[in-house]
Design a binder for these strands. Sequence first.
RNA 1: GCGGGUGUGGUGAAAUUGGUAGACACGCUAGACUUAGGAUCUAGUGCUUCACGGCGUGGGGGUUCGAGUCCCUCCACCCGCACCA
Length: 924
Amino acid sequence: MSEYNHNSFEPKWQKYWQDNNIYKVDIDKSKPKYYTLDMFPYPSGAGLHVGHPMGYIASDIVSRYKRLKGFNVLHPMGFDSFGLPAEQYAIETGQHPAITTEQNISTFKSQMNKIGFSFDWSREVQTSSPEYYRWTQWIFEQLFNAYYDKDENKAKDIAELVKHFEANGSEGINAECDDDATVFTAEDWKGYSDNEKATILLQYRLTFLSEAMVNWCPALGTVLANDEVKDGVSERGGHPVERKKMKQWMMRITAYADRLLGNLDRLDWSDALKEMQRNWIGKSIGCELDFKVADSDITLTAFTTRVDTVYGVTYVVLAPEHELIPTLTTDAQKEAVETYVEEAKNRSERDRQSDVKTVSGVFTGSYVINPLTGEKVQLWIADYVLSGYGTGVVMAVPSSDDRDFRFANHFDLPIIRVIEGTEDMEDPTQVKKGKMINSGFLNGLDSDEAIKVAIDKLVESGQGKAKVNFRIRDAVFSRQRYWGEPVPVYFDENDSPQLVPDQQLPLNLPEVENYLPTPEGDPPLGNAKDWKFDDKFGYELTTMPGWAGSSWYFLRYMDPQNKEAFVSKEAVEYWNQVDLYVGGTEHATGHLLYSRFWNMFLFDMGFIGHEEPFQRIVNQGMIQGRSNFVYRVKGTNQFVSYGLRKDYDVQPLYVDVNIVNNDELDTEKFKEWRKDYADAEFILEDGKYMCGHVVEKMSKSKYNVVNPDVVIEKYGADTLRLYEMFLGPIEQSKPWSMQGIDGVWKFLRKMWRLFYNDQGQLVVTDGKATPEELKILHKTIKKAGEDMESLSLNTTVPAFMVCVNELAAAKCHKKEVLEQLLVILSPFAPHIAEELWHEALGHEDSVILASFPEFDASLLVEASHTYPVSINGKMRVKIDLPMDISQEEAKEAVFANEVVKKWVEDKPIKKFIFVPKRIVNVVV
RNA sequence: GCGGGUGUGGUGAAAUUGGUAGACACGCUAGACUUAGGAUCUAGUGCUUCACGGCGUGGGGGUUCGAGUCCCUCCACCCGCACCA
């Protein structure tokens, strides 16, 4: 074969790998395991664009590398196949989402296979298949049957809680539960009806029904979890979201808040990612303290992290939603308060968020007593206090909190400075910590000390206690949609939720004629005919959220066909944690928290042996689109080139980037692109039509989507793989550009020419490699190995280029060298490696089964080193010196050099620095 | 506002973690071979200067024999969170 021609062999090897099940893996205890995972995609109708495979390519390279290094590598792929787009499409067209989804998956798979990924497709999972969601439902049932014991700090079987209730009632139980959990005795418990018992247990279960404020999105017709709402609108589609009280299934993720936070320290994730999770969990350590309402027996409990500043409290504020407001409002203030509360209620979430600077509030007319100072201060209501955080009551310290400061200034409330040094400052909140002043028994203490002393005092007098608060909320689990897992629950004659028995799982998603809510306002599942448990009891009509199926799929890959369990003990023991998880940062607070939560729960219950699912995560950057524009002269069919557009009155129009090459428009293709452009005329510059460009998200409507199939057609999968890595560090976002892909392609052609000459004759020779040739090879082995371990894949490609350039220059065609080069290149470019491995080198087995060559350090040892010699820190000349030269000898040699003499002249030598194998620096 | 990150040629980017700044590619320039070139090969290519040289890693300052790398300070851009008490 005379020329490198990817089309002639890439499909051939893809078929060979598939036919020979080369990527199929099984438990093999004789080998160490390695688990590489990609965040599985939602199979959208648009197919893959060139941005998607970047992470997949990186993880594929690592998988292939680890395999060559002797690991048994689990590298699966599957589909997160429940989701909104397929359902929206069903609503519009009546097409069942399962059909659309199946078609899309088939497109995705064919695109992936063309790139040559080493996935073990026999382990594929699809979250929407009943065989899979049977176990998602099963996990839901385990969560239903469990509660969280705060003493042992783990989830336990709900039966143990029942035992405790039977013996002691609610006395002495330290478990995660609803805030308003019932208090009762063992006697009470025995007297309760089944229904009453069920209601109480629901207050403890890790998945539970609750009447709660939720994010309701009318446009999508469903509630959304907090992480699915961004800036007050839905993350998908950008529709407005309202707060609404609804009965919903919830997940008690807050039980795990502290462990989810604490474990972060031992995970090998980027700081940014960990920080995002920390923020989301939002732990704050502080205390609760009681403010008695003056002339009343009501006590308000406030949460603060800065109890040291308690002497600076000049007023206390309630959230507008606080339920005691009517009782606490004096008659004189009644009207003002009601007006304010009404207004605050009507402000949308979005308003409240975007308008942070406006100060508003109202005085209740009541006063409260500071528990530590005995001072009487005003009680206010303001919407800067959130009902959902802490207790909905804030002790305001205008001298150290920005919001309190603004508020006090606005309403002319007193400000007491309690930190030394802030006495004369216009804005005392600029200094947050220091020695306490004006603070009674806290005077002279440092802020941090004062916090401890103040808490002790509060505890002593029974007016407060240390308290840790979390920002994270329990997760809403219900979705009022069709295309998701049915919740395996029915409601009995008392309307009490009951689990569908295990033997009857999966509870299949029923057929419906209409994917919209029922006329009664029930979710779409309400349209299912005769869908009842035991023909009697109605099933739960909401479905599970998108994150349910994706919260445990990494476990199912280990044992995907298991009919007896979600994963066998043996499989999960062997494959254990995911060693490398590659995916986008957009899942930082959703998927990655929920997965950790479920995994931790399954660990607590003894089903799996590891607490954290993903030891190492690498977030690949986004590939942005690069849109092109043409400029039509208004009212004509004339298009003016980018550089000349200023001379005309033009309208920029998107043009398909696939008919533009390096910003130059293919005018012929442009005329064919659309009917109305068929007789377009062009005003050219330098004989070319140049387009404008802008970097933005890849999307169909912007005509900037580049399909990997197109790149593969022209350059081949190996070039695509190498090029996507060559573009830069994997974590970095960058616009897609084809500039430079030629360089990678040329590299593969050069590589090819080490094996075949222009006439297509094999030129590989059998001779013994020279030390020089071995050196070229081994420094590449070293570099490639290190890079693949650290995922610096962008620098590996140049290392290969240098290697091939040097071998070509040395006219080295020796089998001994080329054979090993093919092995180390094969993770990046498996097709060309396999082709040459068989056709040029005559191997029978696949290169995938080879071993990664051992790097031999002794081959890189040199007799001499070229030292850069600097005079006063400026590099002036390079001198070859023997490796083992002493400082004295080096000095002699350096000063004998003409160039050095010229620079030094007769100036006195101040210093002579000699760093072996590095540098010489002369200071004059 | 808080937190995280990034700033290096015309472009994408390297730099053994304090030791020759710009590897490797794209692009560009010149030449060779060619009927032809969006093929291939050779040479050049940070800026500046005829040259010797000088200047160069967002700006300013510092530590050091030596700083893209460490410290201080300021600026710009990107990402995340945001009345969280």
